[in-house]
Design a protein around this nucleic acid. Structure first.
Lengths: 178, 178
DNA sequence: GTAGTCATGTAAGACGTTACATGATTCT
DNA sequence: AGAATCATGTAACGTCTTACATGACTAC
């Protein structure tokens, strides 16, 4: 379970309510969890039980009350331990490649069509990443290093899609007509 | 659940036992499921119940009996339907990027160390992909197209790691000393 | 004799998504 | 009138991994 570290990471920057975290998650490629209620709210309740975060209820006029979560010293220690730990390799799950692998009974036209539909989705995804990068101010930028790292994280996603598009071009070029 | 289509795809090439499929899965980046028993054996039993595959028990001397699974016409129809369907975008889950995102409390040295540990893992993974590509004959290669597609699938993984390494180089170059 | 391969299967639990439930306010 | 946003939480289910269970044979 990494989601707890993702949440601790965000809380180490500033305090958030569950609802705010949920919105951050659902707009983010980095925090890939779908931003569903269950995982976030349940994780926050557990983090609170383990005293890695604290809860503060904030009443609002004309709106339901918020629970603002803040990271504790214990939480910071846990987070730092994880941040320094050996990085894992990224997990890639590419269903399109599995489709390609089973493409032996497709006609040349069907295959080209499949490829161009994948290409279109990649283009769209790349554009969305670039748009997000422009708008995106939801990250710490107190120091040059923080600003730089966040820009590189955005670039990582862009460059993934660019790389995938380049690869697809090679597929289209080399594909035997038979 | 895509694993059933992954299995159908392999069975559309030739018949396999559960144990053989399990080995294919655990050596493969494409078929990313960990090659655990439960999913494969249970999925095979379900596919059999739905008449998408047939089972044939093969007795062996000095070894336990095998269950050889073959795809049915119904299975081929299902598989083709899925293969022609709109491809999904790849899912990438990169915990290292989440570590980077929370790196604001690391020293310059700690951060450089984290980066170089990730770099080493990427190199290793790239080498392993290249080795696999050399040895790899576990795929259909009856036509030029099949051979080409399988080589491009291997290249996709290699190029992912190469791209990631290039990106890391940019991170190291641009990282502010502060 | 200990570990590994061949071969199938079940059980338990972690992780993740979708949907349900509530209720006021605001926007179209 | 209907949908969207704010806000929290639960229930049910699907997916995925680890571990357990059995048993014969092989290799060191």
């Amino acid at each position: 379970m990494t989601i707890q570290y993702a949440i601790l990471g965000l809380l180490s920057w500033k305090s958030f309510s569950g609802y705010e975290l949920k919105k951050l998650f659902s707009n983010s490629s980095l925090f890939y969890w779908s931003g569903n209620n269950n995982q976030i709210y349940v994780t926050l309740l557990n983090l609170n039980k383990e005293k890695l975060v604290t809860q503060e209820i904030q009443q609002q006029e004309n709106l339901p009350a918020k629970k603002i979560y803040s990271i504790t010293k214990k939480g910071l220690t846990e987070l730092k331990k994880w941040t320094l730990a050996n990085p894992e390799l990224p997990e890639i799950r590419n269903a399109f490649l599995i489709q390609l692998a089973g493409a032996h009974f497709l006609s040349h036209e069907e295959l080209l069509d499949l490829i161009s539909r994948y290409e279109e989705e990649l283009y769209l995804a790349l554009l969305m990443e670039r748009e997000k990068a422009k708008r995106d101010t939801d990250h710490p930028n107190r120091t040059k290093r923080e600003t730089f790292l966040w820009s590189m994280i955005n670039k990582n996603f862009e460059s993934f899609y660019e790389n995938e598009i380049k690869w697809l071009t090679l597929v289209k070029k080399g594909l035997p007509h038979e």
